[in-house]
Simulated scan of single mutants.
Amino acid sequence: PGYGLRAARALYDPLVYRRIRAALGGRVKYVICGGSPLGRRLASFYAGAGIGVFEGYGLTETTAAATVTPPLRPRLGTVGQPLPGTGVHIADDGEVLLRGGQVFGGYWDRERQAPVDVTRDGGWLATGDLGALDDDGYLTITGRKTDVIITSGGKNVAPAPLEDWLRAHPLVGQCLVVGDNRPYITALLTLEPDGLGHWRQMTKKQDVPLRDLVDDEDLRAALQRAVDEANRLVSRAESIRAFKVLPVEFTEENGYLTPSLKLRRAAIVRDFGEEIAGLYGR
């Protein structure tokens, strides 16, 4: 790093990074992450704070982790390399297949009183996740096979990269990318309460009701910049052309998130069908 970057970090460490380390106990050097995508940008933030992140990937059916970041060889944005004894293969359609001694024997069939084998030829378990392997064997998860959007023009779009990038923005709580059987991609956004509170103070709009704020020109301009940044990750055909800000949050209590905080896509599309239709009726 050059002098400017070293100087910036010297200033940033006591202001931000030291507080992060203190919140994690003060002496933490490593953390383990799994269950949902961490994202390259957030992993970079923790690395800058001096905290190494060991990111892993696995399923209940694989008895926990199948891959993990190897010590001293992190590759941000990936979930690491296969653990010893584990095989990882990418199918022709991009689905991640796993094999190894820790893969379960099948789901229990109560009527037959025996397990039902669900593995493919050669003992490969289809995970339902989409991914890619690089030349060094690091696995990157790009989305869920069932979440792939197919536009009316026949373009296949994985929504996860766009959604993960936008969720990392301070103003965005949740993001649902839409476009199945539609001419282009759009998105529904909810607002992050803490980030919105800070934005209200900075723009002197503390007294504006939320139902009016979702159409505020300044707020939409800030969110449009975030959408433009996310669109840089994908091609023009895969980019978000329009978005709608909702005056509600997606939570487990209102039925829009699972207990593991994943989006219940069908429920959101059903209940906000009018808002989605409006994105295509302009």
Rank of each mutant, 00 (worst) to 15 (best):
E111H: 08
W165Q: 11
T78E: 06
A64E: 07
G87C: 09
D109I: 02
E192P: 00
P70I: 03
T203D: 08
L261A: 10
T203W: 05
D93S: 04
R211D: 12
G87F: 04
Y138G: 07
P193W: 01
K205V: 00
R270C: 04
P170R: 13
A266V: 08
V16A: 10
D135L: 15
A266K: 12
R9W: 13
A126I: 00
R112C: 04
F45I: 02
P71C: 08
R41Y: 04
K145W: 00
D117P: 03
G153F: 04
E192G: 10
D207S: 14
R282W: 07
G52M: 07
G273Q: 11
C33A: 14
D147G: 11
T151A: 01
F243W: 05
I20C: 12
P84Y: 04
V227F: 04
E229D: 15
G100K: 05
V214G: 13
E61C: 09
S152N: 07
G128V: 06
K244D: 10
P74G: 12
L246C: 07
G80T: 01
R6G: 04
L97T: 03
Y184L: 03
P183N: 05
A230T: 11
C175Y: 02
L223P: 11
T186G: 15
L5C: 08
P70D: 07
L223N: 10
R9H: 15
Y184D: 13
S36C: 07
R200G: 07
G4F: 14
L257A: 03
T119K: 15
R225H: 13
R75I: 01
G273L: 02
Q102P: 00
R282I: 00
V248E: 12
G26Y: 01
V16H: 10
